[in-house]
Design a protein around this nucleic acid. Structure first.
Lengths: 340, 340
DNA sequence: CTGAAAGCGCTTACAG
DNA sequence: CTGAAAGCGCTTACAG
């Protein structure tokens, strides 16, 4: 493999000059430039990224940390889609993407810090967000550039991109109330994730606003999987006072909830709404109502914030909230109580 | 950030000695080792990966090339799942994963070669496989370590991991014939992909074996998307001699095909079978029959082959075929012609 | 506009 | 068992 000395020799210049041509320095004569470029082409020369990174103290790569157990992470279309968003933005700026998928959440912090401390990447994007996160604290304390998809604790000065999860919960309840429901339950995600916390907050706010009853046990903790949703719905249905409408904090759980209904012949007797707009859920029986999250944009925006701070020297934390959107389909599209 | 000199100074040894401790060299006294390790801990020292890679000429990272337009790539659960498989194997060996997602197929080759020539990665895994692929030729000519998921042209001496796509086509037809079908069509993927070629070959072999009619136009080219499957099915249904059973080369297309049937009130009048076993397709109406591909294992095996050649010095191309499995659900589970 | 020199942070023969 | 020296392939003040 040709190196910078080979190019310099062939072009009859010094390595410094070759380096300047690569960097696009203006103070090189056009003739020299042409000779150097020709030599690079002739030798099929690519600068060694390791040598560059070593001296420039920049890698031109960013890390993407996917922390949840992989089975969950990838069963859910959120992660591929967020990756697409990140990737599209990085590609535009010539950055490489290093993907860190840890099997267990407790490996996340080590893997992430290793990437940064070994100088494999210039910064990281965290793709899930917990209420109490040591990783966040460590990253902030050590001043590494990073952006969180989700949100930090109020007052924590870190950059993040989130969707409006409180509004998501409110929208879902509002929609169900509009269809005549008064007994509305929630199947939530793991309690330590900020998405779960915020969607539940929105749910409760709307429950209060509409003065609905909320019996104990009407908010069930699931795990963002189909099976979790199935079990949670089974639990709700076995109550003496089952709900007529259920808000699931994620489509995967909503799909499981629909399965539980179908098994009991209760399809279209209990309304179900999810979150995310997984493409196939529109084709289920019944087609699933949902709140669509701008997942691609969450990824692209996170990448843009990170690149801004890396390349534009944009300073200080920035926080962006992207809007979600109610999508009504058959799983909720009837009026309860009012005849029908 | 502490470097190797800082550690050496604190431990009262030379940088060479620190380096040997990091490398786990045996010829260092236990006392020195302990002192050095203590110093590393105290300084929270991580070796600079760029410096290491530069001198060792190894990056300890591999590239994963995802070439199809991202929309397709990630709408299909194949890619996330193959990534999981690759990632799980790399993690076990301490390798990092650099993900290259090119928007258009023609960017693929440049992006891949750049990763290798810049020495960002030690080798690559290609996640899709075309009949004629210049990238393959270039990689082989320049002797870069790589593994293909899919297969190369017969006789081409490259390493690959594939599933038994010819058998997939045969299995699907065999199943439909077993249910009484004689007019069987195929909705195929893009003609330049080896999966399409092989699945069609299996389809045709079985059609011959069972002496079925195969009218012109009974093999329609789709594009691995839902919409493509929808259009292809619409085309087949508008014929004077529509098929009674359709083999789709991918679940996404099969889902589209089911939609076309549903719109026309033909659900359960035309049998549909897909390939891949996308988790949600089991919940469609009707639940989709399919041929399940060992996608995670394809990824994990490809990573293992690459690591073998990188770290074990395993030489020469290796080629592995993993078996697929028929999964019968309601979309095909009735007997045609025979009463019912 | 161009070059010689120093240095980024490691590893690895070579020598003892 | 340990260290001094050279070198991996670049970039970047400094000097002219």
């Amino acid at each position: 493999m040709a190196n910078i000395k080979d190019v310099a020799r062939l072009a009859g210049v010094s390595p410094s000059t070759v380096s300047r041509v690569i960097a696009g320095s203006s103070r090189i004569s056009p003739e020299t430039q042409a000779r150097v470029r020709e030599a690079m082409r002739a030798l099929n020369y690519y600068p060694n990224a390791n040598a560059r990174s070593l001296v420039r103290r920049k890698t031109h790569a960013i890390g993407v940390i996917i922390a949840r157990p992989a089975e969950q992470a990838f069963a859910n279309p959120f992660f591929p889609e967020v990756l697409r968003g990140i990737g599209s933005e990085l590609r535009r700026h010539g950055y490489d993407l290093v993907l860190s998928m840890t099997a267990a959440p407790d490996e996340e912090q080590g893997a992430c810090m290793r990437l940064l401390k070994q100088r494999r990447v210039d910064g990281v994007i965290l793709t899930s967000s917990r209420a109490h996160d040591e990783l966040l604290t460590e990253l902030a304390a050590e001043q590494y550039p990073f952006v969180l998809i989700g949100r930090a604790a109020p007052g924590q000065a870190v950059s993040w991109v989130n969707n409006d999860n409180v509004a998501v919960g409110e929208m879902a309840v509002e929609h169900l109330v509009g269809r005549g429901h008064r007994r509305i339950a929630m199947i939530n995600g793991p309690a330590d994730l900020t998405v779960s916390i915020d969607r539940e907050q929105g749910f409760r706010q709307a429950v209060d606003r509409f003065k609905l009853d909320l019996p104990a046990g009407y908010v069930v903790e699931g795990d963002f999987t189909k099976d979790g949703g199935y079990r949670a719905m089974a639990e709700l249905l076995s109550r003496p006072d089952p709900p007529t409408g259920v808000f699931c904090a994620d489509d995967a759980m909503a799909v499981g909830a629909l399965m539980a209904l179908k098994e009991r012949g209760l399809t279209r007797r209990v309304a179900v709404i999810g979150v995310n707009d997984d493409p196939l859920t529109a084709l289920l029986d019944p087609p699933l109502s949902t709140v669509r999250i701008p997942v691609f944009d969450l990824g692209a925006t996170a990448a843009r914030l990170l690149l801004d701070s890396l390349t534009q020297g944009v300073r200080g934390p920035r926080q962006i909230v992207l809007p979600s959107q109610l999508v009504v389909r058959e799983s909720t599209n009837w009026v309860v109580g009012g005849g029908n």
